[in-house]
Nucleic acid binder design. Structure first.
Lengths: 343, 343
DNA sequence: ATGAAAGCGCTAACAA
DNA sequence: TTGTTAGCGCTTTCAT
């Protein structure tokens, strides 16, 4: 408003009585310039609120100071928190974040990769991405993977230890006397769904439990879908004593469906959620669930991509995030088998 | 990977046997160039997957083809949906979106405005922003306001008709026989909170109801806060027969608190939410709430900012979004007054 | 309808 | 330590 629109390095140079390249040095390599000149120039820069033109700078340096985040969607809470962590930390380091939602669609992901390359973005963070290939991505761009193993490709990777989480969870349930365990996955075909199913099966085996395929039911990620899937699970007389939901949102539907059958949680059937979404602590009854620090992960991921941008050949970082059980009121000790209760 | 990293307009020109400026014309003003040359050049552009360097282009045109979205946070579902609508529509028009979360903090907003100017971003969308002033914003940048009236400043504005929503809602409740209406607002000091309180009071008056200040209780936007605020509301014997929650997330806590007092929803106390968040349909009981099309709003907002970028002096657009009642199971007819029930 | 040439604002190699 | 200069890749005016 009150500001002149185009103040350039040339004007700063004139004011300071030095050459433009000296001003440039003050900005980019302050150590190369004499203290007195530096301070004089810095004073003018500050006074004029001068900021280098990013186009001119980018044209020269081939750097945009922009990082892209690709997530399957914006609405899943853990992605929103992740994005928040990333954005805040990036901003601290003077980077900006562009964000794309891929819907786990390979074609769209390709388009996004192309777009990212065309924009000359410095680094990309892929969260739960399909990434069948990334030919469209310009060679050498910094990359970080979240929840997809890139270690073989020499890519920094942040993984959520879903296997460990299910292991903890199944152990917890077994300790409570459960053995008939149902699982209302989200979208069975999504990356997150596939990963959870495999972790679930592995954990079951680890604890000597048989996996009954009909106890694993798919749904999209909404509560309503969870409700419907659970209803199916509850048909017939061979019924689980506890149901794991692939997310807390799904868990709402699970509890709804259990109630609608005239059964109570946890008296008749126990339920556990996933992700500790806001609201789950205030549900009726408060939902036992699994959580991890998505926001903190976002911050560390942002640090990692910046590091990678500045040091393409640095050592690859692999970091694993563990999940913990938040014990609330939806799981109770199971002493009798289902057969005895329902037969 | 398989791609040459720097293919420039010069190379396309050489291949096509024309001058770089002709290639530029083919890209930016195709109508100015002879059909045959145009097709030949276009063929090479396509073959090489050529895309103009955004730095060089921006340096010349002063356009970044980037739009900024500023929201109070990423985690509130309606902002996530809004962002999705905006991003998808922008991408269709070859724009990218950078996103900033302001936490409704004036200082941070100022920093963000500065950043936006420094980045030479083409347009900004402010959602529920404080915007005490926007001196930091470069003069003449395209702007769109969401949920903040900018009509006086000649700024395109998209408003959610919260007043109309509360009017509908209070009418609905009055028709059901309610007159003691409690309101668990979110953050009373936030922009959204303030707006809702004022709309609530106005609607109450419109329908001849007295506003009892102690029936309006604040909370942050979490379920747990909603629970605590509701507990306070339920102390003593002068108790509302229906409680409006400022969001569905808050509503979860409201229901929890009601239940924890040994009361039932809707038999003893009715509850209504706000925003129709996913899960509310599967709650126990399914939550009656208010909704609007946040995703669609995002799309229209994206169209508006693009229009404004291309036509800074075009007519100002003001659009109002109405909300509708989603009637589910948490409100029931109230025939007796509270006094008779609880005295 | 096309080509030639200048210049957007900056950085960095080279010279002094 | 500082100045001089070239050039990043593009668009656009001017000339043809």
């Amino acid at each position: 408003m009150t500001k002149k629109d185009t103040i350039t390095i040339l004007e700063i140079a004139e004011m300071s009585g030095v050459n433009p390249s000296t001003v440039s040095r003050v900005i980019n390599h302050p150590e190369m310039v004499n203290e007195k000149t530096r301070e004089k120039v810095q004073a003018f820069i500050k006074e004029c609120n001068y900021q280098p033109n990013p186009f001119a700078r980018g044209l020269q340096t081939k750097r945009s100071k922009i990082v892209a985040l690709v997530v399957p969607n914006f609405t899943t809470l853990s992605f929103a928190n992740l994005a928040r962590g990333i954005q805040e930390r990036l901003m601290q380091s003077d980077y900006s974040m562009v964000i794309f939602s891929s819907h786990e669609d390979e074609v769209l992901e390709k388009k996004i990769c192309k777009k990212i390359s065309d924009l000359h973005i410095d680094g990309v963070i892929f969260a739960s991405s399909m990434m069948p290939n990334y030919d469209e991505l310009s060679y050498g761009i910094a990359k970080v993977f979240i929840d997809r193993d890139g270690s073989l490709d020499g890519i920094d990777t942040f993984i959520l230890d879903v296997e460990g989480a299910f292991d903890k969870l199944i152990k917890y349930l077994v300790d409570k006397g459960h053995s008939n365990i149902g699982f209302v996955v989200g979208d069975k075909k999504s990356y997150a769904g596939l990963k959870k199913i495999s972790a679930f099966k592995k954990a079951m085996k680890n604890h000597g439990l048989e996996v009954d395929e009909k106890f694993i039911v798919g749904a999209l990620w909404s509560s309503k879908e969870g409700w419907n899937a659970t209803s199916k699970l509850l048909e017939g007389k061979d019924i689980p004593s506890v149901i794991i939901a692939g997310s807390d949102t799904l868990g709402i539907g699970v509890i709804g469906a259990v109630n609608s059958k005239g059964l109570s949680v946890p008296e008749d059937i126990s339920v556990v959620g996933f992700n500790n979404e806001p609201g789950s602590e205030s549900m009726n009854p408060p939902l036992t669930t699994m959580e991890y620090d998505d926001y903190g992960m976002g911050q560390e991921v942002a640090d990692a991509i910046i590091k990678r941008i500045n040091k393409p050949e640095g050592e690859i970082e692999i970091k694993i995030y563990t999940m913990d059980i938040i014990e609330r009121k939806t799981v109770r000790k199971h002493l009798l088998t289902n057969k005895i209760i329902y037969d």
